[in-house]
Amino acid sequence: MNDCLLCEQKIASVPSWKALLALEKQTAICQDCSKKFQRADIKEEDKLLDQVTSLYTYNEAMREYLHQFKFLQDVALASVFANELRTLLKGDPTIVPIPMHPEKRIERTFAPVDELLKSARLPFTHLLEKTGMEAMGEKSKEQRLAVKPLFRLKPGTSVQPSTYILLDDIYTTGTTLRHAATVLKEAGATRVEAVTLIRAER
C-alpha cells in the first residue's frame, strides 16, 4: 500500500485475485486523482509527421501536474504516466526524446521527457540536440513558424532508414515536433511518428 503522489492520501486497494497474485500493476496515483485527467486520445497524420498520438487534454489537473513536475521539480511525478507510456511505446522503433538545452537541463536538474521514459523503463536514444536556448512556450504562433532550425543531429550519431518515435510532453502547434522530424528525415529516417502526453488547445 502506497500513498498517492498527487494528493498524498492512501491508495485504497480493491481486493482482487490479480492483486493477490501480485499481477496488478502498482499505480502511483489514486483513482480520484487519475479521474481528474481527461483523455484526448488524438491520433492524426501530418505532412512531416507520419503519425501524432496525444494522450491527454491540457485541463486544470494536467496544468497542476506539469507545474509540480517541471517547475517545482518533483521528479517522482514521472511515474504517474509510466504504465501507460510503457504499454503504448514498448516495441521496436527507436524512441527519440525531444532534447533540452544542456544549460537548461542543469538549471532544472533533470530533463522531464527523459524522466518519463526512464520511469516507464523504456530505452531511448538522444539523436538530436538543441541549437538555441529559446523555449516554444514563450513565442506567438507567427514567431514559432519563423524560427530557424531548432535542432541538429547530435555529432557522432547516425540515423538508420527505419522508423523513429519522437516523445515530448506537450503538443501545442506542433512546431517543435516538425522541426525534429525534419532533421531525422533529412538524415535518412523513413518514418517519423510522435507521441505527446498532452495536447493543448491552439
Binding site: 509540480q68 536538474t109 533533470f110
Partner: peptide, 22 residues
C-alpha cells in the same frame, strides 16, 4: 517514503530531495 532520489544534472550524481516541503 517522502524522499525521492534521482540522477541530478546539476550535481551529476544521485541526488535526493524532500517531497514533504516541496
Amino acid at each position: 517514503s517522502r524522499f525521492t532520489t534521482f540522477d541530478c544534472a546539476k550535481c551529476e550524481g544521485p541526488c535526493t530531495y524532500c517531497r514533504h516541503c516541496l
